[in-house]
């Protein structure tokens, strides 16, 4: 998919671009309102990632513009302002999702993919990873076409893993994905561990491979590579 990231911090921009390109996307960047405006006018994008505070304008205006021109692109707002008003306003004028800075790139990736799926396939698509098949809209996971019986959190974990395959997912990023922003408990890492243990067991019962690699004590990677 083709993504335009509008964000004034060049370093952050570089990180996002790098991450998204490694995921096999075409990622273009716009460090200012004007560049963004020009690019949107000329090229079609599937997804726009928009920072609200830009040096020469407001990201929300870009969204209004996109909606006025009926450009069919999914929009994700990224903002350092965790103001509910901004969030509501952004979603009202047509943004599809809202992420508060600092966000985990894996989280942004998951959101972009989910949004793309909703937009292009109306959500009715399957995510495949070797013998694993995930149906995000019905929250179902199949191993060798046999349904895997999972709790909601287990589903969220494997979904997050598969979407961010081959990526290091830190425990913090997983915890935030599962429990949201407000969790700051040491306990949550123990839960992740427990959930993963259960998940591994359930996958193994259906003859699936264990793709979950523990990366030191930092986090996990879901991969079939060495």
């Amino acid at each position: 998919m083709k993504i335009l990231v509008i964000e004034d911090n060049v370093e952050l921009l570089r990180d996002i671009k790098g991450f998204l390109e490694e995921e096999g996307n075409i990622c273009e960047i716009a460090p200012s309102y004007k560049t963004a405006h020009d690019k949107i006018g000329f090229f079609p994008y599937d997804i726009l990632v928009v920072d609200i505070t830009l040096p020469d304008g407001n990201g929300l205006d870009i969204i209004s513009e996109v909606k006025k021109e009926s450009i069919d692109a999914g929009i994700i707002i990224i903002s350092a302002k965790n103001a509910v008003g901004d969030r509501i306003h952004g979603l009202e004028i047509g943004a599809d999702d809202y992420l508060t800075k600092p966000f985990y790139l894996a989280e942004l990736n998951a959101r972009i993919k989910a949004l793309y799926r909703r937009k292009v396939y109306n959500g009715s698509t399957e995510i495949l990873f070797n013998e694993i098949k995930i149906k995000p809209d019905s929250h179902e996971v199949f191993i060798h076409d046999r349904i895997l019986n999972l709790t909601k959190k287990e589903f969220d974990i494997i979904h997050f893993f598969v979407v961010n395959r081959h990526r290091l997912l830190t425990k913090e990023a997983i915890a935030e994905h599962l429990w949201g922003d407000d969790i700051e408990m040491a306990d949550s890492y123990k839960f992740i561990y427990t959930h993963l243990a259960n998940l591994r067991k359930k996958i193994a019962e259906l003859g699936g491979n264990d793709y979950i690699q523990s990366i030191y004590s930092v986090g996990y990677k879901f991969t079939d590579r060495e």
Partner: peptide, 30 residues
Amino acid sequence: VQTPLAIIRNKVVLLLESKNLNEKELQRMQ
């Protein structure tokens, strides 16, 4: 500070993903 922190965090993840670090260095990165 949020944006710089986000950048630091991203870079650290990149470093953690690299295979060239020894255990001690990984601990520091963590």
